[in-house]
Amino acid sequence: MNGKSLAASTKKKVGKLQRQFKTIKKTGTIKKELEISSLKKKYRIFYDELPGLLHTIDIDGNILDCNREYAETFGYSKEELIGKSVFTFVAEEGRQAFHDSFEAWKKTGRVKNKPVWFKKKNGTKFLGLVSANNLYDENGKMIGSNTLIKDITEIHDARSELEESQKELQVQVKQLERTNHRLLEAEQKYKNLYDKTPTLLRTITTEGVLTDCNESYARALGYTKEEALGMSVYDHTAERSVEDMKNNLEQWKKTHETLPAEIWLKRKNGSIFPTMLSGTSLYDEHGKLIGRTLALTDMTEIYEARTKLEVHEKHLQQQLSQVQKSNDLLTVA
C-alpha cells in the first residue's frame, strides 16, 4: 500500500471515529437531559406535595415559587402569588414578629418555629410556625430561602380554650376552697357543740350501732368514746327499757320520726338511770335514711325530786289522816 492509500484509509477511520463520538456524545447528552428532566419532575412533585405551606423567596422577600397547599390555604392561584412580597400576606398583629424573623434569617441564615399571624385572601387569619433554610448560588452567595409554614391555629385555639378552662377551673377551685373552709368551720362548730354540750348525744345507724357520741354521753355511762363506738344501743339500755327501745327504733325506721320516750340507760358498772329520748334523722346525699342523732336528757334529778315529793306527799297524807282521826274523836266526845 502506497502513502496516498494509507493516508486515505487513516482519514476514513478517523472520520468514522469522529461520527461515532458525536453519536455517543449526543446520546449521552440526551440521556443526561432526560435524567435532569426526571429529577425536575420528582422535585416538582415533592415540592408541591410536601405537607405544610412551602414557598421560595428571594433575598428581598419576593415569592419565587410556592406549593399547592400554600396557594390553597391563602386562597390565591400560584400565578397571583408569584412575585408578591411575603409581607403582603402577614396579618397586622403578626407584622412585627415576621419582620423580626425575616431580619434574623438574613443575619443568621436560619429561622425555626417562629409564630406569626397570617391573613388569607378572604380576610380570615391563622397562626403559623415559620421555619426557613437558605438557598445559595454556585458561588456560595445567599440568594433566598425555602420557607415552611405550619398552620397551628387549631392547636392555638385548643390551647386558648384550655387556658380559659384552667382559669375557670382555678376560680372554681378557689370557690371550692372557700366553701370547704366554711364547711370545715361549720363542722368544727358542730363538733364542738356536739362534744361539749352537757346533753347526752349519740349517733346511731339504722341497726342501732353507735357511730359517734359526745363526751357527756361516754362519761355518764362510764365508757371512753373509743369503747362506746361500735356498741349496740341495747348494750346501753337497762333491761326495763329494752322493749321500749326496740319499739321506738322500729317506729322511727318506718316514719323517720323519733317520738319522745322515757328510756332507762345502763352504765358500764351495771347501774341504771332514767333519760328522756328525742332525736333527728340523718340522710345520705340521695335522701336515704342512714341513722339518727339522739339527745338523752338525764332525768335522775327529776326522778329523785319526784320520789322525794311522793314521799313528802305520802307523809302529808299520813299527817292529814291522823288529824282527821283526831277531829273525828273530838267530835264524838
Rank of each mutant, 00 (worst) to 15 (best):
Q172L: 12
T293Y: 05
G291E: 01
A7I: 14
L135F: 11
T275C: 04
L81G: 07
L221A: 03
H315N: 12
H55A: 04
K325I: 01
L221I: 12
L229S: 03
A261P: 00
C213H: 06
A158L: 12
S85A: 14
Y136V: 08
F118V: 01
N133T: 10
P198E: 02
N214V: 00
K150I: 12
K22C: 04
L200S: 08
L201E: 04
A295E: 10
D58H: 03
S326K: 15
T88W: 08
T307D: 15
F21L: 15
N192Y: 04
G279I: 15
N122Q: 02
G208M: 07
D151T: 05
L183V: 01
P51A: 10
K254S: 09
G222L: 10
E49W: 11
T300W: 05
K189P: 00
I152H: 03
W105L: 15
K288T: 15
C213W: 05
N133Q: 08
Y190H: 09
Q170E: 14
G83C: 01
K121H: 08
L162T: 02
L201F: 14
Q18T: 13
I149F: 04
M276V: 05
K106E: 00
Y194E: 03
I59R: 03
L277R: 08
E164W: 00
K308W: 03
D137R: 13
K4D: 15
T197L: 10
V311R: 13
V242M: 07
E310M: 14
G128L: 07
I36K: 03
